[in-house]
């Protein structure tokens, strides 16, 4: 393993063309993410946060600037080279899940692992672990269409993690989920993060963001804050009762 940062950007700019009007979505976001970091990217809608991770995953071409993934220049790659990079090293989970409809849930999850070179046995074990963690073991043989939206979202997360990517990009991974499903997704993210998974997650949900250990706030395509979240304090054992104050 090299000690290069997993992600490094140098003044990346993305300008969309809206008719004759250029619309800058990202305006020079210098960013460095080290291996093992869990970074949340926040900001109001239109702040450029989704565009930023799409560029990091090669799904959006940058207008100018540089993007480096694990020490390799990525923004100059061709589409097919990007696809190869994603297959090997980047997992992507979106708000909309794009599961393959005519394959079972299990096959959807195992596929990326197999494409990345895992043996069928490894792929199956990884799939069983991930679906188990997300409470979906019983749905393994179903087609995705038979699952509820929240379940499909969790399958998409399992798929993104199947090949143990060195970088997980997540765009609003809890966007459509209810409280319980959100909790399952966040628990899994925290768990793989503890095992060293690097994660960049775009979210507007502060509860989700607080699982990260660093939060980057964007506004109008620029970083307005980039700071670690203060660690939970150790100290005397607390319980839920300490959260409230009862008055007569």
């Amino acid at each position: 393993m090299s000690e290069d940062p997993v992600v490094k950007t140098v003044n990346p700019v993305k300008i969309y063309q809206n008719g004759d009007v250029p619309v800058p979505a990202v305006r020079g976001v210098d960013l460095q993410v080290e291996a093992g970091e869990f970074v949340a990217v926040m900001g109001p809608s239109g702040s450029g946060k989704s565009t930023l991770v799409h560029m990091l995953g090669g799904l959006d071409q940058r207008t100018s600037g540089e993007i480096w993934i694990s020490g390799k220049r990525a923004d100059t790659l061709s589409e097919s080279k990007w696809a190869l990079l994603r297959r090997r090293g980047v997992g992507f989970v979106f708000q909309f899940f794009n599961l393959i409809g005519n394959m079972t849930v299990a096959d959807n999850v195992e596929l990326p692992a197999l494409l990345a070179g895992a043996s069928p046995r490894e792929a199956r074990q990884r799939r069983e672990f991930l679906l188990g963690e997300l409470g979906l073991a019983a749905r393994a043989d179903d087609p995705p269409a038979r699952l509820a939206g929240g379940e499909q979202q969790r399958v998409a997360l399992a798929r993104a993690l199947a090949h143990e990517p060195s970088l997980l990009l997540a765009d609003e991974p809890t966007g459509n989920l209810d409280t319980r499903n959100t909790r399952d997704v966040l628990r899994l993210l925290s768990q793989v993060h503890k095992k060293g998974q690097t994660i960049i997650m775009v979210t507007h949900d502060h509860r989700a963001a607080s699982c990260a250990d660093r939060v980057i706030s964007l506004l109008d395509g620029q970083i307005v804050d980039d700071a670690p979240i203060p660690a939970a304090r150790r100290g005397p054992r607390r319980n839920a009762g300490d959260v409230i104050e009862l008055r007569g």
């Binding site: 966040l186 502060h206 963001a209 607080s210 979240i229 203060p230 939970a232 319980n239 009762g241």
Partner: peptide
Amino acid sequence: TRHFLGLMRELHHLSETTSPDDRYAHLLIE
């Protein structure tokens, strides 16, 4: 914002360390 995120993180931690059976506690934390 950082301070509140830190508090949010504490609540997360609290939620994880509170027994799942303790429904009132979880509702309170939520």
